[in-house]
Design a binder for these strands. Structure first.
Length: 578
DNA sequence: TCAGTTCGCGCG
DNA sequence: AAAGCGCGCGAACTGA
């Protein structure tokens, strides 16, 4: 491997002509740490055909050399990265944004369903695709000071290997018909880098107030719980506060005992087990204690320390292909599980002078299921702009739509969302109660189930054909492939392609969106499965809202040719929807 | 003592 | 035969 160290802009000039004309360049970076807001780029490594691997020392090369880097990375040539989401954030700090990417990590994750390795770090990829052993010594390297020969060598190798990885992966992507989904993921990763880099604003003051209020609620509930148990054993804690020992309402064993002592013969302490006894004052208090305690330990307590000292914002991390279905996941903190409660969501606000734009796909999974199953009744309902929940209510109740009560429509929601994915009658009964507050007898649930499948024959046929074949693998409508594990339940067979296709749609929208947002001061600040949050200058908010809506519709229409899409969009001061 | 697992629960 | 699915996270619990 031929390596050339580049210390100053002049050293790079002789290579500029070839680099800016290159169709493919592999790019890797080494940084002084993981945080793009506090750490520095140390090396940028570039590898291309017929050139030595160029190892650019940013400490001496920047800032004067920034224009040269920008000229190389901004061409339409393909730039290969391993986990582009990481490197792109450091490049964003220099206002550099490569337009066309190939990400070996994402490619490998897509190939998991076609014999690819389970792990997708560079070592695993080299081992599997090139049969090479990488000893990653530089993991613990210090990139601050003088660099050793071996650091330079490893850095160069990490870029060079990406060129060869892509060459081996491309035929596999083609053979497995993954080109469409790979294109979607590669465009989307730019949005993911942007999203993590920009973060989301949390109103620290409001959050603190909510914390204190909820803490008071928790204490009230706890005091009341103590009236149900004999002689609390009090002990002074390290912080000088009296706490009860051996009476921990966090402990399921203890709670179960207390419940039994009070004549509540439940088998477990989960909400659904307690439901029959929900009127009992002990159960009522326990549930309100749990709600407050959960809010504090999962949200109110841990979020504040995660506010970034430099940006003043939360920077949740996203896994682009993290769920098995192809959905994203989110952590540190998980922004996708904030309570819907408007008190919580109001804290996710627009900073002064700016607005939030909230957009979500309406009933995206039902629309996807309609497209995949080809159910004509469902498709035509969507084409006519009918309310599908009302239609279902009318079909299972044998009543005209005009006579459907709000209660019946609510029950039909549970019927629609549950039965599409193979829920049984007992499951439907419980699901309706828990999620929609609808009481349904087992007989009713059974009857709804039968009538539902009589009414939606396409859904029925779709389920039947899966049941008959139990396919080894499945695909989303954009071609994402997954292999079903041994003895996957039927609901898994129904659900995964639907959930995965919804993810395909959102990712396609994000890829289009990030390109259309170039040059604006509008940020993508949150993604919650079928929902996209933007933050923009107040005066541009309505323009950006229209752009967001049309982009989301365009993405969905491309993947769901038969079923129209509905995107609800709202310009707002905060995430608390009206 | 501590890593790994399970329960319970927040979201779509 | 019957079965919604997918996540992350905190606290308790388990096992060596």
């Amino acid at each position: 491997m031929d390596i050339k160290r580049i210390l100053h802009p002049a050293d790079l000039v002789p290579y500029m002509e070839k680099l800016t004309a290159a169709k493919v360049i592999a790019v890797d970076t080494e940084t002084t740490g993981l945080d793009p807001h506090t750490c520095q780029l140390r090396l940028i490594q570039l590898a291309a055909e017929d050139l030595p691997v160029l190892v650019i020392d940013c400490f001496s090369f920047l800032p004067e050399g920034r224009e040269l880097i920008n000229a190389i990375l901004s061409t339409s040539g393909i730039k290969i990265f391993q986990n582009a989401k990481f490197d792109l954030q450091f490049l964003m700090a220099l206002d550099i944004f490569p337009p066309t990417l190939f990400d070996t990590m994402l490619a490998s994750q897509l190939l998991r369903g076609s014999g690819g390795p389970v792990q997708s770090n560079l070592k695993a990829l080299a081992q599997h695709y090139l049969n090479e052993d990488l000893d990653k010594e530089e993991q613990t390297s210090n990139w601050q000071g003088e660099l050793t020969e071996s650091q330079i060598l490893y850095a160069a190798r990490d870029a060079e290997i990406l060129l060869r990885l892509r060459k081996v992966m491309i035929p596999q992507i083609l053979e497995n018909h993954l080109t469409q989904i790979a294109g979607i993921e590669f465009r989307c990763v730019k949005a993911m880098a942007h999203l993590e880099y920009r973060g989301i604003y949390l109103d620290r003051q409001k959050w603190q107030e909510l914390y204190e209020k909820t803490e008071a609620e928790r204490k009230t509930a706890l005091d009341e719980l103590y009236t149900y148990v004999e002689r609390p054993l009090m002990q002074m804690s390290l912080w000088g506060e009296d706490v009860a020992i051996n009476q921990n309402f966090e402990s399921q064993q203890f709670v179960l005992n207390v419940l039994h002592e009070h004549g509540i013969p439940v088998a477990a302490t989960a909400k659904q087990d307690l439901y029959p006894y929900r009127r009992h004052p002990l159960v009522k208090t326990l549930l309100s204690y749990r709600k407050a305690a959960k809010s504090i330990s999962a949200f109110l307590q841990p979020f504040t320390p995660l506010i970034h000292p430099v940006t003043g914002r939360l920077h949740p991390r996203y896994g682009q292909i993290s769920a098995w279905s192809g959905r994203m996941s989110c952590w540190n903190p998980n922004i996708q599980q904030i309570p819907r409660d408007s008190e919580f969501r109001a804290c996710f606000a627009a900073p002064p002078g700016r607005k939030l734009i909230l957009a979500d796909y309406s009933q995206i999974e039902l629309r996807v299921a309609a497209q995949i199953s080809g159910d004509t009744r469902m498709i035509s309902a969507y084409q006519q702009g009918e309310d599908l929940h009302l239609l279902t209510a009318s079909l299972v109740a044998h009543k005209p739509i005009a006579e459907i009560t709000p209660q019946e429509r609510q029950a039909a929601k549970a019927v629609n969302f549950g039965l599409i994915f193979g829920m049984g009658a007992p499951g439907l009964q419980q699901y309706a109660q828990q999620n929609y507050g609808v009481e349904m007898s087992l007989e009713q649930a059974t009857e709804f189930r039968e009538r539902f499948f009589k009414a939606y024959t396409g859904i029925h046929r779709w389920h039947q054909s899966i049941k008959a074949h139990l396919p080894k693998e499945g695909r989303t409508l954009a071609g994402r492939k997954f292999v079903y594990y041994e003895k996957a339940g039927l609901p898994g067979y129904y659900n995964t392609p639907v959930q995965g296709t919804a993810a395909d749609i959102v990712k396609k929208a994000l890829g289009l969106l990030i390109e259309r947002l170039a040059g604006t001061d509008t940020y993508i600040v949150g993604i919650v499965h079928d929902e996209i949050l933007l933050e923009s200058p107040a005066e541009e908010a309505h323009t950006m809202a229209a752009l967001l809506k049309s982009t989301m519709e365009e993405a969905a229409n491309a993947i769901l040719p038969k079923v129209p899409t509905k995107v609800d969009v709202l310009v707002s001061e905060s995430w608390a929807e009206k």
